[in-house]
Amino acid sequence: MKLEIVLMLAVAAIWLALALVYALVPGLDMPGYIRVWGIGALVFLALAAVLYRARRNQT
């Protein structure tokens, strides 16, 4: 279960980093990428949180 949480957090972190790249790098004028990768990061963060809660409920 711990691995699953770590993996989901890693995915969320990468999506967030990509969203930040699109938001901060000049010339990458594609706000759609910021929205989709950013919201995606939140979805995977939420999945990590749900897994964490399930783990806590088990123990």
Binding site: E4, M8, V11, G32, R35, V36, I39, G40, V43, F44, L47, L51
Partner: peptide, 16 residues
């Protein structure tokens, strides 16, 4: 779980 999460994100991309 990962696939279902990705489906949700793709729904977001569809809205976008």
């Amino acid at each position: 779980l990962a696939w279902a999460g990705f489906l949700i994100v793709s729904a977001v991309a569809a809205v976008n």
